[in-house]
């Protein structure tokens, strides 16, 4: 007869391995989201009108459809249709990253737009090209402003990552479910999973807050 405690004790290493999977999925999709979201934001602010339209559509698509639908659409629908044989893990990062890129592009767009117009004018006035002005003047300021938004994005992704268990990604939630359905210790296992998610949220936002303080410009509140 297994007690809640002994089950937890035995399954903890197994669960903690899931934490790594969760973190890789979250950090992977957060990075992918930034990599794609940054050019989207720049394109949406400075690009020609047709490009702005297309980016608008992209954002609308990924923000408008529930995560689970997108996961199934890509994993069971789109990728097999394109004869792409991606693992559930890869698809999880691609889908979460794409969704995150849509949200991050809007965080960054807001940040870019909040930089006073005079900064761009002054950069042009000293002979910078628009691309140089964006890279050396606008983005260094906008990225600083975007950190609180990222902090939020991180915690949203962390929670969303649990849904990828539906594809069979062996992350924390999937493992908790797996153990619970064998041992019937649902209460303690989901409590434990929830608790670990809480800690991860806490640590991540703490780290980003620290980063925010570190790069904050002197003299600005």
């Amino acid at each position: 007869m297994s007690t809640p405690f002994s089950v937890l004790q035995q399954s903890l290493p197994y669960l903690l391995q899931g934490v790594w999977v969760t973190l890789v999925v979250v950090l992977g999709s957060l990075s992918l989201g930034l990599l794609v979201g940054l050019p989207l934001a720049v394109g949406q602010v400075y690009g020609p009108r047709p490009l702005k339209r297309i980016i608008g559509l992209y954002v609308w698509f990924f923000r408008g459809i529930p995560l689970l639908v997108l996961l199934f659409l890509f994993y069971f629908g789109l990728f097999p249709f394109l004869h792409l044989d991606f693992s559930a893990f890869t698809v999880a990062i691609i889908v979460l990253g794409s969704i995150s890129s849509a949200y991050q592009s809007q965080i960054l767009r807001g940040a870019i737009l909040s930089i006073p117009e005079g900064q761009m004018k002054a950069a042009r006035a000293i002979g910078m090209s628009d691309a140089q002005a964006i890279v050396h003047i606008i983005l260094p300021q906008a990225l600083r402003l975007a950190i609180p938004g990222w902090s939020n994005e991180y915690s949203v992704l962390l929670k969303d990552s649990a849904v990828t268990y539906a594809l069979g990604v062996a992350e924390l939630m999937a493992r908790a479910h797996h153990v619970a359905s064998r041992t019937y210790q649902h209460l303690v296992l989901y409590l434990c999973a929830g608790f670990i998610f809480m800690i991860l949220t806490f640590l991540g936002t703490r780290a980003l807050n620290a980063l925010h303080r570190k790069v904050k410009l002197k003299g600005y509140s």
Binding site: G118, A125, R144, Y220
Partner: peptide
């Protein structure tokens, strides 16, 4: 533009 210096009313220094 490099050869034409511009001074703005609001300075427009790069804040970062």
């Amino acid at each position: 533009r490099q050869q034409v210096g511009m001074i703005f009313q609001e300075f427009n220094l790069f804040d970062h």
